[in-house]
């Protein structure tokens, strides 16, 4: 209830067109409009301007999703990708949160190890992908490991930063009421670190996705990577784009799950 001055209100009403006001109240409508516009441009360009060997219009991709799933091995490859991403994400979350807490809680650990973490995070890890394959083989393990090594660093860094930002008076007051170290960790530090943990999770999610798919593309005998190169080499853009769209669906669904959990645990900030 900031502005209640009658003249201020009428001034706002008069300067803004009803359509603009409607859009300002519905940001989702604007988002939908932009997506529809981009799809239309794509549709038009693919039909009339570009080579159909390299790109297909979105309507054709959508209509032929059935044939994509009918391709032998594709459903299994998508299932495998989902499995690798899910396991990689869970491992990255556990390792990232554990190391992030340890490094954030101790000044000594932070000063000793944070530079190493930042250096490793800054490395273009794709250059050492062959080492992952040598260590973990050409199966799912190397993809999961590469996903974990991409996803755990953002989680680590945001958890460590979140733990350090805690207001010292909260710890002091817990101590004054007789809280033990374990109680301070469980009742003060954990809940404080939850929002930064979720920020890290969402950043880490893209990392895991990137790591798993990079490893898939590098070496794969039956997974997403195999079909991606197969469709590209056979000049089948319809099925290629359909496959990529399915990966995007996996990413959106996982991100939405994390977002829902974040809203649930962040109620107090509303």
């Amino acid at each position: 209830m900031a502005v209640t001055h009658p003249h201020a209100r009428t001034a706002i009403v008069r300067t803004e067109a009803p359509l603009k006001r409607w859009f300002l109240r519905h940001p989702g409508a604007m988002r939908g409009l932009v997506i529809a516009l981009l799809l239309l441009i794509w549709e038009f360009a693919a039909r009339f301007l570009l080579d159909s060997d390299f790109i297909s219009p979105p309507s054709v991709v959508l209509m032929s999703l059935g044939t994509l799933f009918a391709t032998p091995g594709v459903p299994k490859a998508l299932g495998l990708a989902l499995y690798e991403i899910a396991i990689g994400f869970a491992l990255a979350a556990v390792i990232g949160a554990g190391i992030g807490l340890a490094v954030g809680l101790s000044r000594f650990a932070h000063r000793s190890f944070m530079p190493i973490i930042l250096l490793l995070y800054g490395l273009p890890q794709v250059t050492i992908l062959p080492i992952f394959v040598l260590l973990f083989g050409i199966g799912a393990a190397s993809k999961i490991a590469f996903g974990v090594s991409h996803g755990m660093f953002p989680i680590m860094i945001s958890v460590a930063a979140g733990v350090q930002k805690i207001n010292p008076v909260l710890r002091t007051s817990a101590r004054s009421m007789g809280a033990s170290r374990a109680q301070i960790l469980y009742h003060v530090i954990f809940p404080h670190a939850v929002p930064s943990f979720f920020t890290g999770l969402r950043l880490g999610m893209t990392g895991v996705l990137l790591g798993v798919l990079l490893a898939e593309l590098y070496v794969s005998t039956a997974g997403i990577g195999f079909f991606t190169s197969l469709f590209t080499q056979n000049l089948e853009p319809t099925r290629l784009i359909g496959l990529v769209a399915m990966l995007a669906v996996i990413a959106v669904v996982l991100n939405e799950i994390v977002r829902r959990a974040e809203l649930h645990y962040g109620r107090w900030r509303a």
Partner: peptide, 20 residues
């Protein structure tokens, strides 16, 4: 050290846990 059975503390800024 802290004597929670004898002494209670009220701090200058809010020392309430914001998530509770």
């Amino acid at each position: 050290g802290p004597m929670p059975h004898d002494i209670a503390y009220v701090f200058q800024e809010s020392a309430l846990f914001p998530w509770n």
